[in-house]
């Protein structure tokens, strides 16, 4: 990722807007952008989804492969999640090996899904110590207008919820749906103009500061938290964010269930 030049004018403008409790695209502080979620959009994948949040567009695809279980966990399969953002998504993304930013995207999404325990890794075992399913979740950004984290997380969990284990093709039984016991949902917040806002656009990310990612499961259980970029925040600010995340994750969960 090229280091974006942060225009002083943009920061100043975002600050002025914040002072009047306004945002650059007219949204409320806690308002998300127009959202579209579709599943099973890629015929060659075993599970897939497309998510559009404003001008941010991403795809998620699920594939399965047979792995040998790790020696210390002979009865378990695995999950592998990675994100790719190519220059097609935006001119600040470069071609070449994965950038630290895209690695972080994959890891933060991976942690929320993995730590929620929504995939029963024991159920992925085919023959203990010999064969188990590895779930591969690939995330691709087509257009980056900010908050790729939430778009990837939502596309990822939607694709997994609609995935089929291709046992027939591998000659190890009959095809069956991948069972998920929970639906972890991520909400991300950026400090823009001195206060936190939900679902930052590209310009808000460019002229903003630190960010906080929260993944909540069913019953509002916390599965992963991550702070990104430099900055300091107060306990009160966090409480406000957490309270919004509890409401918003429920809405999003309903949307994809």
């Amino acid at each position: 990722m090229t280091i974006p030049i942060v225009p002083k004018l943009l920061r100043a403008h975002l600050g002025e807007l914040a002072a009047n409790d306004a945002r650059i695209d007219g949204r409320d502080r806690w308002e998300g952008r127009e959202l579209e979620v579709e599943h099973s959009v890629l015929p060659r994948a075993e599970g897939s989804a497309r998510v559009r949040m404003g001008d941010t567009i991403v795809f998620a695809g699920v594939k399965f492969q047979i792995m040998q279980p790790y020696p210390d966990r002979p009865n378990q399969g695995g999950l592998m999640c990675s994100a790719e953002v190519r220059p097609i998504a935006g001119r600040h993304w470069e071609a070449g090996p994965p950038s630290p930013e895209s690695i972080e995207l994959g890891r933060v999404v991976d942690r929320g899904i993995r730590e929620s325990g929504c995939i029963d890794v024991d159920s992925l075992c085919i023959i203990p110590g010999e064969k188990a399913w590895q779930v591969i979740l690939d995330l691709f950004a087509i257009s980056d207008d900010g908050n790729l984290f939430d778009a990837f997380a939502l596309a990822g969990i939607t694709a997994l919820r609609n995935a089929t284990i291709p046992a027939e093709r591998f000659e190890v039984g009959e095809d069956e749906p991948l069972m998920l016991s929970k639906t972890p949902i991520m909400c991300s917040y950026h400090r823009v103009g001195g206060r936190f806002i939900y679902d930052a656009s590209g310009r808000e990310e460019l002229g903003g500061d630190e960010r906080i990612h929260i993944t909540l499961g069913d019953d509002d259980n916390v599965h992963s938290l991550q702070k990104g970029l430099k900055g300091i925040f107060t306990a009160d600010e966090f409480e406000e964010i957490m309270s919004h995340a509890c409401d918003r994750t429920k809405e999003l969960r309903k949307l994809i269930s």
């Binding site: 929620s116 499961g217 509002d220 259980n221 916390v222 992963s224 938290l225 702070k227 300091i232």
Partner: peptide, 14 residues
């Protein structure tokens, strides 16, 4: 009482 770092993994109720 401010925070500079925050991370969490696992399963915690509110």
């Amino acid at each position: 009482g401010e925070l500079v770092f925050l991370q969490m993994d696992g399963d915690l109720s509110q």
